[in-house]
Design a protein around this nucleic acid. Sequence first.
DNA 1: ATAACATACTAACGTGTGTTAGCGATAAAA
DNA 2: TTTTATCGCTAACACACGTTAGTATGTTAT
Lengths: 197, 197
Amino acid sequence: MARIKTDNNLTRKEVIVTKAATLFREKGFKAASMRDLAEAVGVEAASLYNHIKSKTELLHELCFSVANRFLHKIDEVELEKTSSVEKIEKLLRFHINEMIHHYEEVYVSDREWKHLSDPYLSNFQNQRRIYRKRFAAIIETGIKNKEIKSIDAPTAVLIMLHAISGIESWHRSVQKISAEELEENMISILVGGLVNR
Amino acid sequence: MARIKTDNNLTRKEVIVTKAATLFREKGFKAASMRDLAEAVGVEAASLYNHIKSKTELLHELCFSVANRFLHKIDEVELEKTSSVEKIEKLLRFHINEMIHHYEEVYVSDREWKHLSDPYLSNFQNQRRIYRKRFAAIIETGIKNKEIKSIDAPTAVLIMLHAISGIESWHRSVQKISAEELEENMISILVGGLVNR
DNA sequence: ATAACATACTAACGTGTGTTAGCGATAAAA
DNA sequence: TTTTATCGCTAACACACGTTAGTATGTTAT
């Protein structure tokens, strides 16, 4: 009888969630079926329900675990006694590394959150809105300090975050530059576009 | 008996494609059903098939009409006798305006092309790859000229294109700055991040 | 060894999907 | 007005989906 392998002291549920992330990234949430997921896990579809409540629960877990990581990071960064540009750079580097090392989850959280259903959907949208506002506030401070050139802060946030989601293309490309080079290039362009010269 | 309205000398098929774009953007290609589309058009689902061959055909039309517009533009820009930075700025402004004024189509083409099926899928991916290479080549030239700082050109392209797709958030936001302000802010940040100082 | 539990299986359900066939209604051409 | 082509309808199809019920198998604790 097939059994879900649990290497590296992961629970069976965690194995499922991880495989779900890969699948949701590859095919999209709607197009990925529970039968697909079952096959990836090595089990029959119905067996998954011994470990999870529903397909949507998988999406919840993915979206909110990612969102929480970003919220904790901005909590931390806001408290630091550094310049605005340093704070922004720190956040960007965190985003970049999350996108590099937790690609599947972050990507799914970014692109598939629309398929959350409603207590969770509004919640997620709220967290997202608040996060962006706090990010924009850091930029605003930098503009007042003359560290950063006079631009519309929400637009800047939107550019930064979406630019980073482009790391998706890096992952898919055959000839990759190294992760470190990628990080430095992105920081150079993005921070370079903000600062007063 | 209900009939598809064709204002502004559009064919009935064009009306369907346009509504499909809106629907695919809102719900995603897979989650948007032909019955949803039929309701949006004001007709029964089966009636749509008097005008289109399949659901996927709708996606083809959207993806390739967008792709062709970008390819024609880069054809035009490459021929101009201007600096690399001017060429890039021109392309970026085109991208920005496409994203502002043909939001639905461009967004769908960007996010839902994965659901194309295979003669079209490879074709689309090819066009996309080639476009990005040509864009990167312009940047490379700019780097050799010392117009542009020494960065990895493919990474720069990826940042630019994804940053612009963030205009999606601008469309959804309640308090929008004007389209002109948006354009100038984006250009300022993106071009500012590239140029040598 | 036995009891208790966790996990996987088969079978099936109701529902929603894209799409086709065939028929009536409307509009355009003769 | 008659003919013809266009367009929309109802009904139905075959299929894939998420999920549940009930049962068998394997694992852990007594």
